[in-house]
Structures are given as C-alpha cells and as structure tokens.
C-alpha cells in the first residue's frame, strides 16, 4: 500500500502533465469553436513543456548558473540544463504555431464571418 502511495506521490508531476495534456487534446478534437481548439492546442503543448522541465529537476538542485570561482562543479547541486534549453525552443515553437493558427483563424473569420466549425462546414458545402 505504501509503495503504491509512494509511487503515486513520487510522480505527481507526471500525473499533472498527463491530465493537462488530455484536457488540451480533448479540447482540440471535440470543441466546435476554432478559438477554443487553438487554446486547447496551446494547453496541449504546454503540458509537454511541463513534462520536459520536470525531467530536468533534481531534488536539492538549484538553477544551473555557476560561480566563476568554483572549479569542481558538484553536478547534483544543479538541475539539468538541457530540458530547459529544449523547452525554450518548444515554447517558441508553440508561440509561433499559435501565431500562425490565429492568422488562419482571422482569415477564416474574414471569409465566413464565424469561427464555429459546424457553421463553416455548412458554409463550405454550399
């Protein structure tokens, strides 16, 4: 029992990211409004960022900024910098995707006057 509890508590960051990711995924595939879908997409991407950042964390570790004086770096004192770097990229990607998606949404709105998917589809069928 304890081990299960420990298993659950010890990995709560993972449960959080899964939850977040599924919220985003659900919004993306089931929502009718395109803006909501775009928001869902953003949540989805953010969940992955959370996942990566939590990989890099070490208990008792601090931000990976070293002192100029110290010679031997005690690695376990600093969190893993690589996921941060990767996620900077992922953030930028998600911002860019968001921008492009918004631009497309504006184009759609300009053309159809609505952002509800079913109305657009109806409009397209005609």
């Amino acid at each position: 029992m304890d081990s299960i509890l420990e298993f659950i508590v010890g990995r709560y960051n993972y449960w959080l990211y899964i939850l977040l990711m599924m919220i985003g995924l659900y919004a993306m595939i089931s929502k009718n409004n395109l803006t909501k879908k775009i928001v869902g997409m953003n949540i989805f991407q953010t969940a992955i960022i959370l996942f990566y950042i939590s990989i890099g964390f070490k208990k008792g570790g601090t931000i990976p900024i070293l002192e100029h004086t110290s010679h031997a770096v005690e690695v376990s004192h600093f969190v893993n910098p690589l996921p941060h770097v990767l996620m900077l990229t992922a953030i930028v990607v998600s911002v860019s995707t968001f921008g492009v998606a918004l631009a497309l949404a504006i184009m759609i709105y300009r053309e159809h006057g609505t952002l509800e998917e079913d109305e657009i589809l109806k409009c397209l069928e005609q």
Partner: peptide
C-alpha cells in the same frame, strides 16, 4: 521525480555543467 540519478541527469547534462565555464566562460549553463 527529482531523482538526481536518473539517466537523463547522468549521461550528457553533467558534461555541460562541468565544462561550460572552461569551454565558453559562461556561468549560465542554460
């Protein structure tokens, strides 16, 4: 979560932490 001995923390990332200063003289490893 936060295990300092996870494979991700042991394989490549220590190299960055250890060599950043001597290679690039930049304290901010990120």
């Amino acid at each position: 979560w936060g295990d300092p001995n996870s494979p991700a923390s042991l394989h490549v990332s220590p190299v960055y932490l250890q060599r950043s200063l001597e290679d690039t003289s930049v304290p901010n490893v990120v």
